[in-house]
Computed example of a mutant assay.
Amino acid sequence: MEELTETLSASFSVSKIPNNPAAPHPRLSNYKVRTSAVDQNERRRKQLEQQKQNRRDYVNLARRLAEDDWKDCSSEEDELDESAEDMDTSTTKTKKHRKKKLRYYRNRLMLSEWLVDVPSDFETEWLMMLCPIGKRSLIVSARGRTAAYGRNGYKLNQFPSLLPGGNRQRTSASGYSILDTIYSEATRTYYVLDVMCWNGAPVYDSDTEFRFYWMRAKFEETPEVSSNAKLNPFKFIPLKYYACDKENLTKVMSEPLPFEPALDGLLFYHKKTHYTFGTTPLVTWLQAWMLPDILNIPVPQSYIDNKPPKARLLPPSPMDVNNPGKAKGKSKAQVEEDVSEVDGSNTME
């Protein structure tokens, strides 16, 4: 029974999102992908082309998020997952209002995929962030208060802060900010992954390089937000970003972590991607123990020790059992030998 449960947990997935980090990595040897997703590199190329054509009124969207004003909301601003409304069968006016309000704050974060196919321009066109263990939160500071929302749109907390618009004693009529963060309860700190709006200026449609540069510059201008105070009970600390060349990544992984919590994993951002809602192949994710197999980057033994028992990653794609000849650098016989070894292993316990 235990063996059957393990098999089902590794192979069953409700989500149709390609390379979903909520599921095991597609290259884990006992994880069988049930649907053949479009090549990750091809989806990256298409999304980079598509974002040039997709222009939204981010000024108006940021204002609505800041002011919680959704009157006469256009269909473009309301392009969220409508399935959330079907979850509540209650017909009371209060619950309907809460559900309608909830959906405007859900799906407002840019989410990652597993890094499966390493892009050819990885060293030159990508940036990396080390991510602490914590809870992903959308931060909106406006009208003299600061609110933290979960990925599902629920408000997790409300408090004053020294972010623009986040404190009644130091706010302005037009100031508001929107941040993508990871909250660490142990350190009472919001570690900032990305900035979408600062002091009323949205940068959703700016590329990653600019957003990261701007984020660092704005936090250097307002160092008080990174310290605990009566008017700033939670710290806001921007996470560092690094170039993705092998020498630099090897150096970063050998150094002490730049934050107190334990390492959750690594995010990789394409330099040219805009801040888009939902899962994108232009932002990818790995756990530290995967770096030697996926990127050929050595990591300290402490990270290898966190590897799940018996976990083993398959050789780089394309490796297709139905088309063994596609496996780069291997004969059909060698591929079949690898597959036979994989089928006899159990990587996740």
Rank of each mutant, 00 (worst) to 15 (best):
E2Q: 10
E2I: 09
E2N: 10
E3C: 10
E3Q: 08
E3R: 06
S15T: 05
P24S: 11
H25Q: 03
R27D: 07
V33G: 06
S36P: 10
V38H: 11
Q40F: 01
R45T: 10
L48N: 04
L48C: 08
Q50E: 13
R55F: 11
Y58H: 06
N60K: 12
R63G: 04
L65W: 04
E67G: 07
E67I: 07
W70L: 02
K71Q: 08
D72M: 04
E76P: 05
E77S: 09
D81H: 06
D81I: 10
S83T: 09
S90E: 07
T94I: 10
L102S: 06
R106Q: 15
R106L: 13
M110Y: 04
E113Q: 15
D117M: 04
D117I: 02
P119F: 04
S120Y: 12
S120M: 15
T124K: 13
W126P: 00
W126N: 00
L130A: 08
L130P: 00
L130C: 06
G134F: 01
R136S: 11
S137Y: 05
S137T: 14
I139M: 02
V140G: 01
S141M: 03
R145H: 14
T146V: 05
Y154P: 12
P160M: 04
S161W: 00
L162F: 00
N167E: 06
T171P: 06
T171R: 02
S172A: 11
S172H: 13
S174C: 12
S174M: 11
Y176V: 01
I178R: 02
D180N: 00
T181L: 00
I182G: 00
Y183M: 03
S184K: 06
R188Q: 15
R188H: 11
T189F: 01
Y191G: 01
V192C: 03
V195N: 00
M196Y: 03
C197L: 03
W198H: 07
A201P: 11
D205P: 00
E209C: 07
F210V: 09
Y213R: 13
T222A: 15
P223D: 05
E224V: 12
S227G: 12
N228P: 13
A229V: 06
L231W: 03
P233E: 05
C244M: 02
P256V: 09
L257S: 08
P258L: 00
F259D: 00
P261M: 01
Y269D: 03
H274W: 10
Y275D: 05
Y275T: 02
T276W: 06
F277M: 11
F277P: 05
P281W: 00
V283F: 01
L291W: 02
D293Y: 01
V299H: 05
V299K: 04
I304P: 05
P308R: 01
P309R: 12
K310Q: 12
A311N: 07
N322R: 14
G325H: 13
A327N: 07
A327S: 14
E336M: 14
D338N: 15
V339M: 13
E341Q: 13
E341V: 14
G344A: 15
S345V: 13
